[in-house]
Simulated scan of single mutants.
Amino acid sequence: MGLPRSLALPKQRAHAILLYTRARYAAGVSQAELARQFGISYQRVHQIVQRKRR
């Protein structure tokens, strides 16, 4: 379902966060640590680093 438009991140910012998350994971940061840093679930981090859509 997703967030209401008023709460959603602008596409460019959301894309930048995805790229940053993937780069940090590739650099050795654990998925659990990334989840804590961004305040999102471990499952969502897993989807991001595995490039799966939600």
Rank of each mutant, 00 (worst) to 15 (best):
46 H>N: 15
12 Q>Y: 10
29 V>A: 09
38 F>T: 00
54 R>S: 12
11 K>H: 10
30 S>R: 05
40 I>K: 11
48 I>Y: 07
40 I>C: 12
39 G>P: 01
12 Q>K: 15
42 Y>L: 08
30 S>A: 05
41 S>G: 12
45 V>L: 03
31 Q>K: 13
2 G>P: 09
3 L>S: 05
9 L>W: 09
20 Y>Q: 15
48 I>S: 06
33 E>M: 06
34 L>P: 02
48 I>D: 07
8 A>F: 01
12 Q>W: 08
48 I>C: 06
20 Y>L: 12
42 Y>F: 10
36 R>C: 06
35 A>I: 01
9 L>C: 07
6 S>Q: 10
9 L>E: 07
42 Y>Q: 07
7 L>Y: 10
42 Y>H: 10
14 A>N: 04
24 R>M: 12
24 R>N: 06
27 A>T: 01
41 S>A: 06
39 G>C: 01
10 P>L: 13
42 Y>M: 02
2 G>N: 12
1 M>L: 09
38 F>V: 00
19 L>C: 09
15 H>G: 09
26 A>I: 02
7 L>R: 14
41 S>M: 06
42 Y>I: 03
53 R>I: 13
35 A>S: 03
19 L>V: 10
45 V>H: 03
12 Q>S: 13
1 M>C: 08
28 G>T: 06
31 Q>F: 01
14 A>E: 10
35 A>P: 01
17 I>G: 00
11 K>V: 14
54 R>W: 12
51 R>C: 11
9 L>R: 12
13 R>F: 14
50 Q>Y: 07
4 P>S: 04
40 I>D: 02
32 A>R: 13
40 I>H: 06
52 K>M: 09
30 S>D: 04
9 L>G: 03
21 T>G: 06
41 S>H: 04
28 G>V: 05
52 K>C: 05
31 Q>L: 02
49 V>Y: 04
50 Q>S: 15
38 F>D: 00
6 S>H: 11
38 F>Q: 08
7 L>Q: 15
5 R>N: 09
52 K>G: 04
19 L>T: 11
42 Y>D: 04
2 G>V: 13
48 I>H: 07
12 Q>M: 08
33 E>H: 10
8 A>M: 09
24 R>Y: 02
14 A>R: 12
7 L>G: 04
9 L>P: 02
20 Y>C: 08
1 M>G: 14
38 F>C: 01
46 H>T: 13
9 L>I: 05
40 I>E: 03
11 K>A: 15
41 S>E: 02
15 H>W: 08
19 L>M: 12
8 A>Q: 14
24 R>V: 02
38 F>K: 03
51 R>D: 12
22 R>V: 01
10 P>V: 13
44 R>N: 06
48 I>M: 09
50 Q>H: 15
13 R>H: 12
54 R>D: 14
41 S>F: 05
29 V>G: 01
42 Y>G: 01
1 M>T: 10
48 I>N: 06
40 I>F: 04
6 S>P: 00
1 M>V: 09
8 A>P: 01
9 L>T: 02
